[in-house]
């Protein structure tokens, strides 16, 4: 508010009414999003009696918990990065590759389906395909004598999980980046080529910088998406793979860590990681977007 004489009472009254309009929403968000999250954050710094401590956070620094974070981050980064790359290539092929326009609508619908086809059923689909008795595994073994297992591939592993997550990561990228690719004006490309730029130079100096914020934002989203994915991981691996969401799930179910407040700390760690990923995104985006209003 600017410095003015106090507003007349009528205006204050109106202002209050306007705020009331979003009260149900605010209340809902407070009760079912903000407070539960805060409860975790605060709990991570509390002893069971409620006093302040760093002990829970310090408790995270055990080899097994640290390695679970490390594997989780690796899976999330790789599935987000590969998902962004492949999704980008597929969207670019669709938008800029001179393919029939009619392909587009079914592909976007399919992307909508696949990006929502996560969780337990997705795990089953991949078990049926790349599991020990899966379609592809058996086909490669009987037709080509390629034994995936002997080559060190296991669906219950880092790569197995990454490949599975790509099933919802790639379509999500396609859904988000397609409108951005549509936003690239044909004239930019033509102007660049008139000025002597090769296709690669156009992409490096014009198209990619323009798309960068979108790609970065999608990467952050895909990262969080993979980092918090519980159902697929549990259905796929049971508890054989030591990643954060699985550990936290087991902890909530049965306090496997033997310390309820260590669970808070683990959950807090998850918020911290996804939060950090988004802070990095926001900072990079602000730096890369000086040219936007």
């Amino acid at each position: 508010m600017t410095e003015q004489s106090p507003p007349p009472p009528r205006r204050t009254f109106h202002l209050n009414l306007n705020w009331l309009g979003v009260m149900p929403f605010a209340l809902f968000v407070l009760l079912f999003l903000v407070m539960p999250t805060m409860k975790i954050v605060v709990g991570a710094f509390q002893r069971p009696d409620g006093s302040f401590t760093f002990a829970n956070i310090a408790g995270l620094f055990t080899p097994s918990i640290l390695s679970s974070y490390w594997i989780s981050i690796k899976i999330s980064v790789s599935s987000a990065a590969i998902g962004c790359l492949i999704g980008f290539l597929m969207a670019a092929a669709m938008v800029l590759g001179g393919l029939p326009r009619g392909l587009r609508s079914p592909l976007m619908t399919f992307s909508g389906v696949a990006s929502n086809f996560a969780g337990v059923p997705l795990a089953f689909a991949f078990l049926a395909t790349l599991g020990p008795l899966g379609l592809v595994t058996v086909f490669l073994r009987t037709e080509f004598g390629i034994n995936l297992r002997a080559m060190g591939f296991n669906i219950l592993s880092f790569w197995g999980l990454t490949i599975t997550y790509l099933f919802f990561q790639i379509p999500l990228m396609i859904l988000i980046v397609t409108p951005a690719l549509d936003g690239l004006k044909r004239e930019w490309r033509e102007a660049a080529s008139c000025l002597g730029a090769t296709g690669a130079q156009y992409w490096r100096m014009v198209a990619l910088p323009i798309l960068f914020p979108t790609i970065l934002g999608t990467f952050a989203l895909l990262f969080a998406n993979a980092f918090g994915a519980v159902a697929t991981a549990i259905a796929l691996t049971g508890s054989s793979l030591n990643i954060v969401p699985i550990m936290l799930f087991a902890q909530i179910r049965g306090d496997v860590l033997g310390d309820p407040h260590l669970g808070y700390a683990m959950a807090f760690g998850m918020i911290l990681v996804t939060g950090l990923a988004n802070v990095v995104y926001i900072v990079l985006r602000m730096r890369s977007e000086r040219w936007l209003k």
Binding site: W188, A191, A192, L195, G196, V206, W291
Partner: peptide, 28 residues
């Protein structure tokens, strides 16, 4: 087109939005 050494001006300006005026002019 990039080997023809031709200058072109478009109806919708088509300036590169991510580059400054100087960078746009210096692009070629």
């Amino acid at each position: 087109p990039n080997h023809r050494n031709i200058g072109m001006v478009f109806q919708a300006y088509a300036l590169f939005p991510n580059l400054t005026v100087a960078q746009n002019v210096g692009f070629g």
